[in-house]
Design a protein around this nucleic acid. Sequence first.
DNA 1: ATTCTCACCTGTTAGC
DNA 2: TGCTAACAGGTGAGAA
Length: 268
Amino acid sequence: MPELPEVETVVRGLNKQVAGLTISRVNRISRHLLKREPSLRRIEKDTFESFTRRGKYIIAKLKSGRRLLMHLRMSGQFHVVDDQVRSGKHDHLDIGFADSAKKLLFRDMRKFGIIEFLDKENEQSLNLLGPEATTIAAPVLFKRLHKSDRPIKSLLLDQHVIAGLGNIYVDESLFRSGIHPLRPASRVSLEETRRLAQAIRYIMKQAIRNMGTTVINFSGVDGDSGKHARHLKVYRRSGERCHKCKDVIVRIKLGGRGTHFCPTCQKR
DNA sequence: ATTCTCACCTGTTAGC
DNA sequence: TGCTAACAGGTGAGAA
């Protein structure tokens, strides 16, 4: 579900709502989380200091010096709610705080999400991430694209190439820069890469300002939906008219992912 | 080595 | 209406 702008929205919400709070209890740790992190309950009595983001990962810093590495994958959500609220079927973590009427729930319908202590093992997955999409520079991107013949969209989805993009924002970035998703990456020119990098930065900034895109069920820590959906130009608009040229937006399948583009505005 | 497919889960929606 | 299949914002293991 969440890509960089949605994760950034969640991180900001967590910093606002739970940074500084001391964990008094952890309830309802579901089996699939414990399987990856058997000692998750040990965050009890610790304090959340701050939350940061790298790509689509969230890193929680605890007062003890330990850090949690978290990933929402497709359907993970954090919600801060009143302590009285009963946790539901898809809530896999229920964290209560000392001196606070709030509690933090981790909800994840599809159970792909990850919460574990950050250690030498999984630190590697952070180290392998490409540069942040928010600040991607054209020459850097060009260097990472030009030697591969794979479709440009596949490379942009690869977190080792560039970190933070997912299916929505790749389609949107390619539309904004006029590049066909199937174009071999090696055949994207330097000039086009400049437009692409600029499009990516612009869209990230705009989507963060809009607190992300809600297509089905993304919501921030307070339960608010993202407001970026109405700015989407191609994603999930197949059959509708292109805002730029009035041609019909097309949907194809690329690497198992729905891929949306304007056949007129985006050159192969 | 690189690149592709599929599995991981559950819910919703499109199509017959 | 009811059943079935396809699809959903991500990623990583294993196959090719």
